[in-house]
Simulated scan of single mutants.
Amino acid sequence: MPLRRPLIVAAFLAAWVAPVAAEPGVEAMVGHRAAYQLTLDRVRENSDIARAEGAMLYEVVDACDGWATRQRFQLTITDRDGTEVETTSDYSTYETKDGRSIRFSLTQTSQGAVSQRIAGEAAVTPEGGSVRYTEPEAKQVALPPDTLLPTLHTIRALAAARAGQRLLVVPLFDGTSADGAQDTTSVLQAWQGPQANERFPTLAPLGSARMRIAFFDRTPGSNAGGASAPDYEVGLRYYENGVADELKMEFGDFSVNGRMRELAVLPNPC
């Protein structure tokens, strides 16, 4: 599961025709479809939020030269007066397996009205690369050196955890911001070997690592990792095949748990 911010998400699917050299480690990733139940974890003191519940569906398809992903998210927040606000988002990407290019589209709604659209494509180079947006407006934004795309970030984080590394600090571009890349700091826990898994036996033979990823808005001259409070944080357990469970999403005033309810590993068509 890539590291998309679920409250900022949309729908897009693209096809790549040129063959690419895959990033080492990409062979372990699998296409899959996972459904998550979302429930309120905690609220900050003096927050007006009384309840939060929803669902998320994540799908990644192995398109041979790249990964086509779609994430649909719905969350209803109820305040202490009983007023409900529903937010939905639909987010899709196509990322080549060499981690060098991505197409993305995102649509977010609040109470049934579109509140945000982001779309475009990005090309990444060791020197940084750039993003060409078509929505919310046509513009081009430079990417900082060493920027990673989301699936490649997952692969690198898993490799770092397996190697005993405890931090991964890099800029990340996932197409959920109209302002280019964000800085990220990933805190990695020790690699875990295979464990019994009665609910999802296909995961039992696999190693995994728990990690917490913080996203920071970039400022001119900033270094990856950020110096202020994160804009968004997610904690999760990644299995070596890219499946994620035990999600905890931090949105500032409140946090939400994501429990995986269904998992289907998709056949490899390549």
Rank of each mutant, 00 (worst) to 15 (best):
D90L: 08
G99Y: 00
S101Q: 11
V61K: 00
E86N: 09
D98S: 10
W67P: 01
A55T: 15
T93L: 07
D65S: 13
E84C: 07
D65V: 13
T93E: 04
S101Y: 01
R103P: 03
Y94S: 07
D79M: 14
R100T: 05
T107N: 06
Q108G: 15
T88G: 09
T78R: 14
K97A: 05
E86S: 13
F73K: 02
T78M: 12
S105A: 15
R100A: 04
E84V: 07
I102Q: 01
R80F: 13
L57S: 08
G54I: 03
T107D: 08
Q108P: 04
G54L: 05
V60T: 06
L57R: 09
L57T: 13
C64F: 04
Y91P: 00
A63E: 11
E95F: 01
G54V: 09
V85W: 08
D62C: 08
D98L: 08
A55I: 09
S92N: 07
G99A: 14
S101E: 13
A63T: 10
Q71T: 02
D62L: 09
S89L: 03
F73W: 14
R70P: 11
G54Q: 10
R72Q: 07
T96P: 00
A63C: 11
G99K: 01
I77K: 06
C64T: 11
D98K: 06
Q74N: 12
Y58W: 13
